[in-house]
Design a protein around this nucleic acid. Structure first.
Lengths: 184, 184
DNA sequence: AAAGACATGTAAGCCGTTACATGATTAA
DNA sequence: TTAATCATGTAACGGCTTACATGTCTTT
């Protein structure tokens, strides 16, 4: 699965500009896919050359020409090819979890701070997803609802584990400080 | 965070060969980090040149010479530099979720099949993590326990959502078939 | 005055994977 | 006999990010 496949999928709904595609990635897919402009614009160029999409150029005042891309039949077929291709393994890469695994080599205060920050970030993400559910759930396909629920429920699970772990760590640090075995 | 940083972290525990490092990544970190031999071996070479690790060569019968790498003080310092560097954002990339989001463009039977397969895979992963917890939890640092619990709890959450979603999808497909609106 | 939305694109380079190359031993 | 474990390495290539390049309008 490359950015091209996901763009092809997006364009099934309606025509998009590169700028809007980036926005859609961040708003809808960010927790399981993302791509930068440095990927999106050249990919759109390639897709046009391959005949998967057509470009409509709309002049604007004081702005670069806007390019709106629409899916062609050939693009629709290419998307089917993707759907028929073997499923790729998931890749999750977390600097946060790596640092947590090696937490014993870090000052407790810093680890605690890092976890607290992450809790805040996950809470924000969760509110965001919950609002999305509240607002748009009705108009969504069943499978999209599953994806949204998965974001919500895994965030909640993560939050529970982090909060429990945090209070245990804090209790430990407090105990260490009382018994004078504080780490430098 | 690159493969080098994670290798540096691993070597704090004991010396490793490249082969063992790969094994450790798969056994302990696979759900939030992984690297192939094509990354590990060249990285070890670079790390040795930089003085972060030292190599001990152990001849073997009918096998390539085994290279066991140990952390140096310079390597330990480099790891601290990593720990002091800004935390990188998490990157999760899931072909499975992309296909689910675009599930409306796929035959329901195939989507259902894909979800069932994923449920099996997550169940296997979960048993694996739960056994690890049962066996090794006592000897683990608190932060490692948090990471392990997170793997377990997010897997459970995912399973719940997937199972609920699956039964809803199935009910829908059955309903469609009865009313004759089956999709080709 | 600064930040963010709108809007497109290129170039350099990193980081990583896959496939290749080699080959013995042991268990199913 | 097939697969897995043990064991190391290289080369080609791909995909993506970052930084660069440009600029206006609107909101705070």
């Amino acid at each position: 699965m490359t950015a091209m496949d996901v763009i092809l999928g997006l364009l099934h709904a309606r025509p998009f500009t590169g700028y809007e595609i980036k926005h859609a990635f961040q708003a809808q897919f960010s927790y399981f896919f993302d791509a930068s402009f440095g990927t999106i614009y050249p990919t759109l160029g390639k897709m046009e050359q391959l005949g998967y999409i057509t470009k409509e150029s709309i002049p604007q005042d004081n702005r670069p020409v806007k390019h709106v891309y629409s899916l062609t039949d050939k693009g629709r077929e290419q998307f089917k090819n993707y759907l028929d291709s073997p499923l790729e393994a998931e890749a999750f890469r977390s600097d946060f979890l790596v640092r947590l695994v090696f937490g014993e080599h870090q000052k407790p205060d810093i680890v605690i701070r890092m976890i607290e920050d992450n809790i805040q970030a996950v809470r924000a993400k969760l509110s965001d997803l919950e609002e999305k559910k509240r607002l748009f759930c009705d108009g969504m396909s069943q499978t999209r609802q599953i994806v949204l629920n998965m974001g919500i429920e895994t965030s909640k699970a993560r939050l529970r584990v982090l909060e429990e772990g945090l209070s245990m760590l804090k209790a430990n640090v407090a105990g260490d400080r009382r018994s004078g075995s504080e780490r430098v």
